[in-house]
Simulated scan of single mutants.
Amino acid sequence: MTEKITDETMDYVSILAKLSLSEEEREEAKKDMEKMLNYIDVLQELDTEGIEPSAHVFPIYNVMREDESFEKDTSELLKNAPKEKDGCIVVPKTIGTEA
């Protein structure tokens, strides 16, 4: 890592993360952040030539089925529904004007 985490950086991160850290917690967080950045530097040294980028280590594909349109007799499903008017099911009003 070329730079050390400064107090200004910690102030900025604390604001972004909405954290209120004591001085002890601040120093511990600073050390942790430096460890993370050092590890990223180690990862930067890896030879990734010829390796394709991936979003996941496992080959995950969309397992959803295709949408299919079909005709279905809904009379059995709707036999217990409320009364119907002009092809629509009539239900009690559920939105009131009171807050």
Rank of each mutant, 00 (worst) to 15 (best):
P59N: 07
I5N: 05
K35V: 02
L46V: 15
S69C: 02
T48F: 15
D73W: 07
V90R: 08
E25K: 07
E3V: 05
T9F: 09
S14V: 02
F58T: 00
T9A: 10
G96F: 00
E98I: 09
A81K: 08
V13A: 08
Y12S: 03
L43W: 05
T6I: 13
K93G: 04
M10P: 02
T6H: 09
K18W: 05
K30Q: 03
K35P: 01
E45T: 01
R65Q: 11
Y39T: 04
P53H: 01
I5H: 01
L77N: 11
E71G: 11
V91Y: 06
T48N: 09
I89V: 08
V63D: 10
L16W: 08
H56W: 15
L78K: 10
D41A: 15
K72S: 13
S75A: 14
R26I: 00
G96Y: 02
G50S: 12
R26G: 03
K35W: 12
L19V: 08
I60Q: 07
I89N: 02
D11H: 12
E49P: 00
F70P: 01
S69D: 11
D47M: 13
K85S: 08
I60N: 03
E52A: 12
V91N: 10
A81H: 06
Y39P: 01
Y61M: 02
E25T: 05
H56A: 05
G50P: 01
D47P: 01
K31Q: 05
E45L: 11
L46N: 13
S20C: 07
S22K: 08
S14G: 10
M1C: 07
P59Q: 07
E68P: 00
Y12G: 05
L77P: 02
M33K: 04
Y61G: 05
D47Y: 14
I15T: 15
S54H: 03
D11C: 04
I40L: 10
K30T: 01
E52G: 04
F58I: 09
G96P: 07
E68L: 11
L46F: 14
S22I: 05
E28A: 10
K18S: 09
L19W: 13
K4H: 15
S14H: 03
I89S: 05
K93F: 02
L16K: 09
K85Q: 10
E8P: 03
D73V: 10
K93A: 08
D73S: 12
E24Y: 06
L78I: 11
L46W: 14
D67C: 06
K83L: 09
N62P: 00
K18Q: 15
I40M: 10
P92D: 05
S54C: 12
D86T: 07
E27H: 01
F70A: 02
K85A: 07
Q44W: 00
E23I: 03
M64Q: 14
K93Q: 11
T48V: 15
S69L: 09
P92Y: 04
T9M: 06
E23V: 03
D67L: 09
Y61K: 15
E27A: 07
R26Q: 01
T48Q: 14
K83A: 13
T9N: 08
A29R: 00
E34W: 02
A29K: 00
K83M: 14
N80P: 06
E66F: 12
S75G: 03
M64W: 13
K93E: 13
L21K: 00
E84A: 04
G87F: 06
P53V: 12
L77W: 10
D7Y: 04
D47F: 06
N38G: 08
Y61E: 13
A81Y: 05
K4F: 14
D67W: 06
